[in-house]
């Protein structure tokens, strides 16, 4: 993952193309058609066993088989347990990552000394992929549940941290000067100015972190367990249940997308000044 993917400037209030704004149903139709096209392409490739030299679809299960596997999972009593276990791990890891990432980011972004003291070790840890953390997290945490949460935490914390730092560094120093001239004490500058000014960047970081958190779910649930969507996917692989693998993958994709969108919507609701004709 590159830094560029993790740092995104706080999204300017969406200025959708005029046509899209005029007929939202057309936008939705396009989006739906795009998804449908992907499924059709997949169906075609899998059923005609396309062989392209480097890539072959000969062993890829077609959409209908996956749909059947999905229906089976839907009717299985295990589904809720899988979902519950995974949601718990993702949200626990994410919550800790949000607190640690945003907290550290505020301090690092504001104080040069904290930056010099804290950032070097974090920069060393950042490129380490979640998989590589598995052995150490098993050693670090006696409970396997905790080590799984640690992995999802690792997945989410860096985008949140980096976006928060970026947001804090971007705070207009004149805003701080004005706040101080209006009688704001040093500590209160944090809550009154820096936090709200960096909020859009923090929400962006949280939304990306939510995505990377799901991204690491399979890795986390490789550690152990009986339940979890990641575990289900991994187990299907060891049992060579290919349609089930794809069901697991798609489930993670949909849940990850859903929670990122929910987070962004929450951000919009909490930051009304970002909407409309704002700057």
């Amino acid at each position: 993952m590159s830094i560029a993917a993790e740092i995104t400037l706080p999204a300017a209030p969406a200025s959708p193309r005029a046509g899209w704004a005029l007929w939202p149903w057309q936008a939705w139709a396009t989006r739906l058609a795009s998804l449908l096209a992907c499924v059709l392409l997949w169906h075609w490739a899998a059923s005609t066993r396309v062989h392209l030299g480097l890539v072959t679809f000969a062993n890829v299960p077609p959409p209908l088989e996956v749909l059947n596997a999905g229906r089976d999972l839907l009717q299985s009593p295990k589904l809720l347990k899988h979902l519950g276990a995974s949601l718990y791990r993702v949200f626990a890891g994410f919550l800790v990552a949000a607190i640690v990432g945003a907290g550290l980011g505020l301090v690092i972004g504001r104080f040069a000394r904290a930056r010099n003291a804290l950032l070097p070790p974090l920069e060393v840890l950042r490129p380490i992929p979640a998989v590589a953390w598995i052995p150490l997290s098993i050693l670090l945490f006696p409970s396997s549940e905790a080590s799984m949460i640690f992995i999802t935490f690792v997945g989410a914390v860096f985008p949140i941290l980096l976006n928060t730092i970026h947001g804090v560094e971007g705070v207009d120093s004149r805003l701080i000067a004005s706040a101080r001239s209006l009688g704001t004490r040093r500590l209160r500058v944090f809550t009154e100015v820096i936090l709200p000014a960096a909020a859009p960047a923090i929400v962006t970081g949280l939304s990306i972190g939510m995505g990377t958190c799901w991204f690491c779910l399979v890795t986390a649930e490789m550690i152990s367990g009986q339940f979890g969507i990641g575990y289900y996917t991994w187990e299907s692989y060891t049992l060579q249940n290919y349609p089930d693998i794809i069901v697991g993958m798609l489930l993670i994709g949909v849940l990850g997308m859903g929670s990122s969108i929910a987070l962004r919507q929450l951000g919009r609701a909490l930051m009304p000044w970002q909407r409309g004709s704002g700057q």
Binding site: D172, R174, S178, A179, R180, S181, A197, A199, W273, G278
Partner: peptide, 20 residues
């Protein structure tokens, strides 16, 4: 000795808090 509300400061470009 430092900033204080008894000395009001106004810049060329406003420094209003956009979130308030």
């Amino acid at each position: 000795g430092g900033p204080a509300p008894e000395r009001g400061l106004v810049f060329q470009h406003h420094t209003l808090f956009p979130w308030k």
